[in-house]
Design a binder for these strands. Structure first.
Lengths: 201, 201
DNA sequence: TTATTTATTCGAACACTGTTAGATAATAAC
DNA sequence: GTTATTATCTAACAGTGTTCGAATAAATAA
């Protein structure tokens, strides 16, 4: 029996990855609503039942994709130089966030529409990999240094949550309601972030 | 044959309404994803095929629900006294918007997640029944009277769109990712709107 | 009233979907 | 080469949305 002959473990991992790749391609292609386990199976040349060796169920595949997307978004946000002037840093974080959402609208929808957050109150700590955590830390630093002036009992969470909401709203509108809308969103984005940050002074 | 014996026309309208009622109840109960035409049929004591006399397909039922929700949201926004000081008016519009979304989270999700906007560019006029139109008009009035000071080439659309995005982001986060999150959202909402409006001065 | 035309509704089928259990093929261990 | 263990598939079940033609109910005409 042995713990796991690394040869078969590797193979297992590889086809698991192939499944995720096909699944992501399908989501991007047809959107989260049209996502079908059987179609994924077809694309990786497995029978539908075969996938259940690799994932508990359809939901688990989606959850895995969310996890990966979460990390990718975090990576994107981490490419923004954090030693910029703090307001500029926040602004660029926002633009990076929106850039990600615009580049992968269906993926973005998937990430934030299906799986509810594990964190359930402000007392619980934010997960380290969570993109929100990057916004939160940036906002906390700004608050601390006084670059961002908030009213009396403002917590960093309140502000970063509101900032996140603004970004999420823009991202979602463009991924859904305004999918086919033609306008100069780039300047509108910049303006939105500008307005919000101006409100924090 | 005659144009339509009003007796049967009334009956037709009545069962159509019954279908919509059952459909809405189902959406609220199980969420838009679990929405099932066959379940609606069961609840109104029709066979699945029977519903096709009243709606072209499942999508048409959802579209009808969206339309109704659109109007309800517009009605909610119209209950806000428009003769308030213009900043206060905008703030209360925002709170009313969020109140609607919080009271009907699944309905809200349905409205803004499935049907893309008919309007496809800034040149096309906004539909009169569109809740967005109320935000737009409020913002335009504020801009015009100078109560809201924007930068040079700001259009009312840019600002109202951004305001809408903020509201939509808050509403969506709470309907999905933060569904089970426990916090004082009411004060966070007020703060978000406050910040945004402060940015417009 | 009865007969006939028209408007409604349904049953059965089709092509999908996710999921499970049991048989089968492929691999590893002895 | 034979056995034990994984990996995979086939077949089935319970759902889903949708279509078509038959069957019912209602409205009209004789």
């Amino acid at each position: 029996m042995s713990a796991k002959p690394s040869t078969s473990a590797r193979r297992h991992l590889r086809t698991k990855q192939a499944i995720l790749d096909a699944a992501l391609a399908l989501v991007i292609e047809k959107g989260p609503d049209q996502f079908s386990l059987r179609e994924v199976a077809r694309r990786v040349d497995y029978s539908p039942a075969g996938l259940y060796e690799y994932f508990r169920d359809k939901e688990a595949i989606i959850a895995a994709l969310c996890q990966i997307g979460f990390k990718r978004l975090a990576v994107t946000l981490n490419t923004v130089a954090s030693d910029l002037p703090q307001r500029e840093y926040l602004a660029k974080l926002g633009l990076a966030y929106l850039g990600f959402a615009q580049k992968n609208p269906e993926y973005y929808r998937l990430i934030f529409n299906f799986i509810p957050s594990k964190r359930q109150s402000l007392q619980e700590p934010v997960e380290d990999a969570d993109p929100y955590n990057i916004l939160l830390k940036a906002m906390a630093k700004g608050l601390e240094s006084g670059v961002i002036k908030a009213s009396a009992q403002d917590q960093a969470e309140t502000l970063s949550y509101n900032f996140w909401a603004l970004l999420h709203g823009i991202a979602m509108l463009r991924s859904t309601v305004l999918k086919d809308f033609d306008a100069d969103f780039a300047t509108a984005d910049r303006r939105a972030i500008e307005i919000f940050l101006k409100g924090l002074s």
